[in-house]
Design a binder for these strands. Structure first.
Length: 578
RNA sequence: CGGGGCGUGGCGCAGUCUGGUAGCGCACCACAAUGGGGUUGUGGGGGUCGGAGGUUCGAAUCCUCCCGUCCCGACCA
């Protein structure tokens, strides 16, 4: 492509309404333009990237035996009534009516449509399993579209739906899709983790999310530094190591009139924070007979509310007790609570169970006990996993330690079961001639979001740094002064032709009106991985300048060898197309 | 849907408090110079000041309503 004939559409200034880097850079690099809130047009540069992502997804889905289909964006509401999902979806579902006043909606997803298709086409268990996918526009009338293409109302999604006779078959395909997704994100060149989305249900593998690691991610992910264990921080199990040390100190009652918080206790009485215990009082569940229950975590650690409310004795949703309730039940204020002589039931975090010689409130206003030891001073109550995982915790799978980083959810694989097949009557005859609902799985990738996530993960102050596999162009070819140098022009034209012929995507900057600085800045903003600068002063020695996007220095390369040089660098991951 | 901000040439903004008929930078067009990191000069083109109504001799500016858009909270690829 020649820049003189191309809608480069780069802009120098950062648009004011773009809050995150990927959005800013996509606008600045001329990839997208906003039409209305949550609606974006893709310009040539953006579309090139999008199509490269789609191509990789297609290739890998096809490789797994999935079959591509294409379903309508507009769907009859009838189907949504049949599945019973219409009311659940609420205003996020954009409803429209046709000229006959029949109700339709813009598809936010396609479970209903594919299930309808399959119930009419598949009759026998002998046809199963089958896996269908499409790459299609979805519409969700988001409450708050934001971050450009990261959370837009209209977006491109690859969605796949598999159909099975039984759970065992579903699990096989589910595992295959897991592997498929790993290959896709590997090929995209992204740093990602597969995260257990709901470890409680269906044996821990019912649903997994794929997250691209990036600081701007909306979810905190805990993952092992030496295995593929990964979980949402809120769901990550905390395992503790070691034994409880033997008591060293006697328990003593101390006057602590001005210590109402852990911070004050630590500061005023020189207590190490990891030797303090926080006592949080919450409502107990109906099953536990109501009333209050205390939850104990270490002074330097945080209660994980999700874990707490899953405990049978704790009310769900979690509700903190008020000051008056605490005083009525315990006879002391919230700042002076602890496990010794506690008149309400109590559950302690695993870390707390391993503490010795610790300090906590005495359940008497203005007093704490120091040097408390379990069993000697008070019985050890129920122990549970109550706290939020921290970086450095041992990985729950026993391998390595946890690291915590933020992630952008770009994929989700899910074992659906028979929810839709039952609702819509999608059944097959099994080997006994009986009608059984098909067991289903579904597998999504947010294609447009992948593009934004790739930028979030790969950029610097100059612009985007594309992974080679999805770069809009592989190489930028930049002459220093085309107007004045016939030699530069001649070589550039020749290289452009040769590279293009070799299947390399080249952006040849043949603009005569722009100076070198402008052209280089554009190439860097666009994030083109390889750059060749053709200059008079190198040509005297028959050389051109090469620089990779992340390099800080030029490499001089013989003009005669640059073609091979580039092709070699394009790497095995992205072989030239012809 | 709550809370907050912002709407002025394509983009980024000033002008609004204190009414007098619109300005700056970038981009664009022409010419000239320059030519290895967003160069310079000269001359141009382009704006119903988000919309409607009102106050006033006069409204970008004051008042009312509406719309759009962005940010912060519960959903999601």
């Amino acid at each position: 492509m020649r820049t003189s004939r191309y809608l480069l559409a780069t802009v120098k200034e950062t648009p004011s309404d773009a809050a995150i880097v990927s959005h800013q850079l996509m606008l600045r690099a001329g990839m997208i333009r906003k039409l209305a809130s949550g609606l974006y047009s893709w310009l040539p540069t953006g579309l090139r990237v999008l199509q490269k992502v789609e191509r990789i997804i297609r290739e890998e889905m096809d490789r797994c035996g999935a079959q591509e289909v294409l379903m309508p964006v507009v769907q009859p509401m009838e189907l949504w009534e049949e599945s019973g999902r219409g009311p659940d979806y609420g205003p996020e579902l954009l409803r429209v009516r046709d000229r006959h006043d029949n109700p339709f909606c813009l598809g936010p997803t396609h479970e209903e449509v594919i299930t309808d298709l399959v119930r009419n086409e598949i009759q026998s268990y002998k046809q199963l399993p089958m896996n269908f996918y499409q790459i299609q526009t979805k519409f969700r009338d988001e409450i708050r579209p934001r971050f450009g293409v990261m959370r837009s109302r209209e977006f491109t999604m690859k969605d796949a739906y598999s159909f099975h006779l039984d759970q065992a078959s579903l699990e096989q395909t589910y595992d295959a899709m897991y592997q498929c997704y790993c290959r896709i994100f590997d090929r995209l060149g992204l740093d990602y983790r597969a995260v257990d989305a709901d470890p409680g249900a269906i044996g821990g593998s019912g649903s997994q999310e794929f997250h691209v690691l990036a600081e701007s991610g909306e979810d905190a992910i805990a993952f092992s530094d030496s295995s593929d264990y990964a979980a949402n921080v809120e769901l990550a199990e905390v395992v503790v190591e070691g034994e409880r040390p033997a008591p060293q100190q006697e328990m003593k009652l101390v006057d602590t009139p001005d210590a109402r918080t852990i911070a004050e206790l630590v500061e005023q009485f020189d207590q190490p924070i990891e030797k303090t215990v926080k006592t949080l009082v919450v409502k107990a569940s109906e099953e536990a007979g109501g009333g209050l229950i205390a939850l104990l975590v270490r002074g330097d650690q945080e209660l994980n509310e999700l874990k707490a409310e899953k405990l049978p004795r704790v009310a769900s949703p979690l509700e903190m007790a008020g000051g008056d309730e605490i005083r009525a039940a315990i006879g002391a204020g919230a700042g002076s609570l602890g496990p010794v002589n506690l008149p309400v039931p109590c559950i302690v975090d695993r870390s707390v169970a391993l503490m010795s010689d610790f300090s906590a409130g005495a359940n008497i206003d203005g007093k704490h006990y120091f040097g408390i030891n379990w069993e000697r001073d008070t019985a050890l109550p129920e122990v549970a996993d109550l706290r939020e995982a921290q970086a450095g915790d041992p990985s729950p799978d026993g391998q390595g330690r946890l690291e915590i980083r933020r992630g952008i959810e770009v994929g989700h694989i899910f074992q659906l079961g028979t929810k839709y097949s039952e609702a819509l009557g999608a059944t097959v005859l099994d080997e006994n001639g009986r009608d059984v609902p098909m067991t289903m799985g579904c597998y999504g990738i947010g294609v447009t979001r992948v593009v934004a996530a790739a930028i979030e993960q790969n950029h610097d102050e100059r612009g985007i740094i594309w992974p080679e596999a999805i770069a809009p162009f592989h190489v930028s070819l930049v002459p220093v002064n085309l107007k004045k140098s016939p030699r530069e022009r001649e070589l550039c034209e020749q290289l452009y032709e040769q590279l293009t012929e070799a299947g390399v995507d080249v952006l040849y900057d043949d603009r005569e009106k722009e100076r070198l600085g402008v052209k280089l800045a554009d190439a860097e903003l666009l994030g083109i991985p390889h750059r060749i600068v053709v200059a008079e002063r190198g040509l005297d020695d028959g050389k051109v300048e090469y620089r990779a996007r992340r390099d800080t220095e030029n490499t001089m390369v013989e003009a005669d060898c640059i073609l091979e040089f580039i092709i070699e660098r394009l790497g095995a991951a992205q072989p030239p197309r012809r």
